[in-house]
Design a protein around this nucleic acid. Structure first.
Lengths: 180, 180
DNA sequence: GACAGTAAGTTCAATGAATGAACCTGATAC
DNA sequence: GTATCAGGTTCATTCATTGAACTTACTGTC
């Protein structure tokens, strides 16, 4: 990656991390992947990202071991991008960033709630459950719509993501096509 | 910020956060500010960032309320950039990102350790102390050089940052000028 | 079997941002 | 008064991003 050159000189893990996920759009792609978005076209319509940039970001993330590209189980010629263990490990970062964004630049009404499915407690700053005291496996994180969330968004992926649902649960567009 | 436009369409706190700190270099500037770097020239030599970009990033961060620009107490015509409460609130994000970078792209030897000064416990994923169970105030975070850290770096700011020291403790270059 | 449509891209010209070097300005240092 | 430093600005070049158009391979539908 040509961009990262200068970062590399830094004696710093943050700089190394930013070489991988520091480019425009990259963290939003990872966020979507953690939400369960897997297909090129789903990323495309949900993010509103230019096609060429998406292709380049996905390739870079696969290269870095954050996503895995593999053929779709049902349609062998299609493929999907699935978060690896390394990608899942970005959840604490994204959770912390999200809280910072909400507390400093959001309006009062939260967009979404994240809860530990087993005990109902809201997930903490780094993805841990304050009640259980441990990091919650992503599959056990329940995503619920908050009062600030638009419940009738234009694109089908946003509609499929309204929830309630779990993190990592693959997005299915089939049943989401009915308007009010 | 012209860049952020597309992000803004997203119903998502992460996107809002990235509008503020998502540009190239920005998070590294904040990291340095949390380390105690305050002066334009110190950011410049430590980051190796182009002057124009630094000026623009600092202005944007002041604008967003992450940094505060104020006259130097000793030299009234100079000024310094100090992290605000909002800037300090980015510490959990940076801590999580740093751990991700180290665990996934670092070599085995850590560059730095972060410890709760009062009990000596290593700081957790989101800046909390696992022993005390609470977020550690940044002034109580002790930064120690790890085995992977270059102990004789070229620029004086890196030398002043070797530590041991505390987060937020202002960088002073005066005494750091003696080579081995 | 022709036609339309979808998925996952690539290519291209135009725009915008990043880079590094040079310049500027006002204060201190000698 | 000459040099140096802090904190910038300006400029030409390079590089990345953007949005639109094109491509290619497969999947239905009539």
């Amino acid at each position: 990656m040509a961009l990262g050159k200068d970062y590399a000189a830094q004696d710093c893990s943050i700089a190394r991390a930013l070489e991988v996920v520091g480019e425009r759009w990259t963290l939003l792609v990872v966020r979507d992947a953690l939400y369960g978005v897997r297909r090129y076209n789903d990323f495309l319509v949900h993010l509103g990202i230019p096609r060429a940039v998406l292709a380049s970001r996905l390739a870079a993330l696969v290269d870095a071991g954050v996503l895995e590209k593999r053929p779709c189980p049902d349609a062998p010629r299609r493929h999907e991008y699935v978060v690896t263990e390394r990608g899942r490990a970005l959840w604490p970062t994204l959770r912390a960033l999200s809280i910072w964004g909400r507390e400093n630049f959001g309006d009062d009404r939260p967009l979404r709630y994240y809860r530990h499915a087993e005990c109902g407690t809201e997930i903490g700053l780094a993805g841990e459950c304050p009640a259980c005291g441990r990091l919650v496996p992503l599959e056990d994180v329940e995503v619920l719509p908050g009062p600030g969330l638009d419940l009738d968004p234009a694109d089908p992926v946003s509609r499929a993501l309204i929830g309630p649902r779990r993190l990592l649960q693959p997005v299915r567009l089939d049943a989401a096509a009915d308007p009010v």
